[in-house]
Design a protein around this nucleic acid. Sequence first.
DNA 1: GCGACAG
DNA 2: ATCTTGTCGC
Length: 271
Amino acid sequence: MEKAPETGIEESSSPNTSQDDHKQWIEAQDDLKRRLVTEDDFSWKLSKENEEEEEALLRYVGGVDISFSKEDTSVACGTLVVLDIQSQDLQVVYHDYYLVTLTVPYVPGFLAFREAPVLLELLERMKKNASPFYPQVLMVDGNGILHPRGFGLACHLGVLADLPTIGIGKNLHHVDGLTYSGVRQLLETKENCTEDFITLSGCSGKIWGVAMRSTKGSLKPIFISVGHRLSLVTAITIVKMTCKYRVPEPTRQADIRSREYLRKHQTGMSE
DNA sequence: GCGACAG
DNA sequence: ATCTTGTCGC
């Protein structure tokens, strides 16, 4: 028999340490990442090229989010909404909730292992019921490739559900030398110039996404990154089509409704 | 050693 | 993520 090499980390002898978990999580991410597609890969169009063929237009855009109970922080409500972007006011045509108790902790860089199972369940449930509103693209409250290993929650979800996804971050995940103050400076510099967003290129030269001031009145940007099966340009276009406020409507509605659900379905009579 | 670290 | 009211402004 051989003695385990001195790695400084207990392996077979001790129960799962967080170190081991992280190692397995990294392997799982790298594994799934091989299936990641970061180019446009869908059949619909963003605008009609001819006067005919309206059926090919993008219509159903989904949004997912999870909110947590303030009393019991392991109690969470996952929410899936779908908006009809062809309707005048971005109508919500579908919503569903999933109340769960989460056991997996939040660890920066591993958000998907905590949240993806809940969100996948909502998608699968919808598919089983053969809903006519199944989303053609999904906006995720969390990053796509803007992630330490280029595989955030939006990618994770996109690959597992085989669905085009867009990552929407409300805070910057510091990666590849990107800093919040650096982004702010660039946004101020570009303020009077061409676009309302700046490209997030790190020290390595890799493009991770963009920081966008989605509303004129919002100084704080949102961080858009490719999730799965679409390009950054397409992601930006779709976000712009759905931005009434700082956070695009699909994820915003998911957020609002999941909080509301928790508020109503809680044992608020605890005295 | 110190700081940073999506939700 | 969550704890939290009013308030200044279009």
